[in-house]
Design a protein around this nucleic acid. Structure first.
Lengths: 348, 348
DNA sequence: CTGAAAGCGCTTACAG
DNA sequence: CTGAAAGCGCTTACAG
């Protein structure tokens, strides 16, 4: 029928364009564009006519044409660089994703998900993002040694990271929890409960969260006049398995320890399992405090006392900040407060 | 400097276009386009010259311009309609997302994530997808009563669903696990172990998986000459909490039951918790079998015997099928096989 | 094998 | 307040 139907089996009738709407409304298509974009200098009658024509024709704008004309893509990349096994088990990820999806949807922006774990994916990702095909990038779980970071900065893509990016504080905006004070409050809670041999399982030391939560542990101990025992500090990678491994190391070093502060709920869960195997009662023999207040925290055995990391707020702030950065405002960091949530693994 | 820099603070120099490449290579830009798209009838020299020019200029194609010209967006929507609390706790979701991201990336397609839970999100989603802004839609956790389904079908958007969509079997292509045989094999395993009072916790009965796994339970029992006791069937919604609630109901109806087949690992986990509270040993007093072999299964207490649902395969097949549907091939369904994974909650 | 040209559907100064 | 026109960066028949 029509001369220029799409090459493959035509997906129904041609979609209406701005010209169809203009014809319906009896105005020029420039005017249609103006009301579409809510610009000034359009008469009320024209606005009404166009709106009617739009609903009659079922018109929706072609985002590609719009992007081509404006030079903005209307989309944001949600970039994950964690190795996949962490992604799989981390309930924080879902919360963040949900929050970002919501915030983006509210602003009529599209969420493009990119996972860069294999070398091929990383190469494709960097060329895609450097190509200017998205308006900005939301970066999750960045590790300071990652070469992707430098490439992204060099490509001048607007970026906002989740958590401080070590070594890039001045170049990459970020939204972080108050990790240091959060860690501190967790350990102060343990001290107040009378614990005297407090160990910690840290996050990766090439991440802001990993470093800052450990610093909070230091702060609390020092403020209380204690010294830091190296044997009471074991490192993890946020995962359950690493938490379990770290707990074993800690028990070897000090079988008498009476408390553990784990820098994530997932690691705390691993620690809980090892303590059970080692026949230590929680909280009777050993108190355990986690970090995040993720979905996990309330369902462990016993339920975890933890530091609440308000990821819904973080997601919202990340999107807000990114739109600022895209608009040209200078990079900055936002810190959201944390709070202690007391459950049975370390009651008040 | 340049007359037409983008409105906000110029993001560095202008990106090279196809004309810049053509100039560099000393050919027309039509020729550049040909080598870009790997079309025939280009001399080897021209190809070489263009490739060199591309790497010298750092050119990457503008996807919006390309989409506008070709009428294809190069992107696929990953659409989630589950209420958010399910999304949060379901480890299957991450596996699927990862698999789809990989398969799409291999085909140079972009993954657009859409979450449609609130009414506003649903409205935006339907208008976005109906607007023809993506080449196709990957649908997750569809419930048969959802009005979104009809709207999507009416909009003639290519769709592939994860799991059979009840009532839309002829209209929506899908990739499903062999749910019925999977459920059957789980229950046969229980029968073979000598269980005689086998209960089941089902998934939602408005989903293909929910119905088919229950049918598998029926099949096994009937084949063994047993009758179906209504009191031994309790319904859940895939979540842990619903599994726990269902388990309580089942114990009330038959305190002597000696086995439970839960239609998801998450529900099995909830059941496990209730059995522990009720002082039933697993597998001593009650055997438990789950479904999915999700990340959860190996970490429960005790680890779960379960039916493996190969979600990585499912993700890959969904993308493959969707590209077929987009290319105009007739809709069809793909079933991937399942297999029993034996662990301690019901040993061999 | 290769150019010149039209067209994809918008936005945006530029004149009126 | 509104139209006519140029331009965004590509692809694709159409002539050569």
């Amino acid at each position: 029928m029509l001369p220029n139907v799409p090459t493959p089996p035509s997906p129904g009738r041609k979609r209406p364009t701005i010209r169809d709407v203009a014809r319906e409304a009896g105005v020029s298509y420039a005017t249609v564009s103006r009301v579409l974009n809510g610009r000034e200098w359009v008469s009320p009658e024209a606005v009404r006519a166009v709106r009617d024509a739009i609903s009659r024709t079922g018109y929706t704008a072609n985002p590609h044409a719009r992007s081509l004309a404006t030079g903005r893509s209307g989309s944001i990349a949600f970039l994950l660089t964690e190795p996949q096994h962490l992604l799989f088990e981390d309930p924080n990820f879902s919360v963040l994703l949900r929050g970002v999806a919501q915030a983006l949807s509210d602003r009529e922006l599209t969420l493009i998900l990119m996972i860069a774990s294999t070398p091929e994916e990383r190469a494709r990702t960097i060329s895609y993002l450097s190509g200017g095909h998205v308006d900005g990038v939301l970066l999750f779980s960045p590790h300071s040694g990652d070469p992707l970071l430098g490439q992204l900065v060099q490509a001048e893509v607007p970026i906002v990271a989740c958590g401080r990016v070590l070594g890039y504080e001045q170049l990459i905006s970020s939204v972080m929890a108050d990790d240091r004070n959060g860690g501190r409050s967790a350990v102060e809670h343990l001290i107040a409960a009378g614990c005297t041999r407090i160990a910690t399982i840290t996050g990766p030391q090439d991440t802001g969260g990993g470093v800052d939560r450990l610093q909070g542990y230091h702060d609390a101990l020092i403020a209380h006049g204690d010294t830091i025992e190296p044997g009471r500090v074991a490192h993890g990678d946020w995962s359950r398995a690493s938490g379990a491994a770290a707990m074993r190391t800690l028990l070897e070093h000090d079988p008498e320890l009476d408390a553990v502060f784990a820098a994530s709920d997932a690691m705390a869960e691993g620690a809980l399992r090892v303590l059970r195997e080692a026949a230590r009662a929680v909280p009777g023999d050993v108190r355990v405090v986690g970090f995040d207040d993720s979905g996990l925290a309330a369902t462990t055995e016993p339920p975890l006392t933890t530091v609440r990391h308000p990821l819904d707020r973080v997601a919202e702030e990340m999107v807000r900040l990114l739109t600022d950065v895209i608009a040209g405002r200078t990079p900055l960091s936002i810190t959201v407060p944390t709070s202690l949530v007391v459950r049975e693994s370390s009651p008040a």
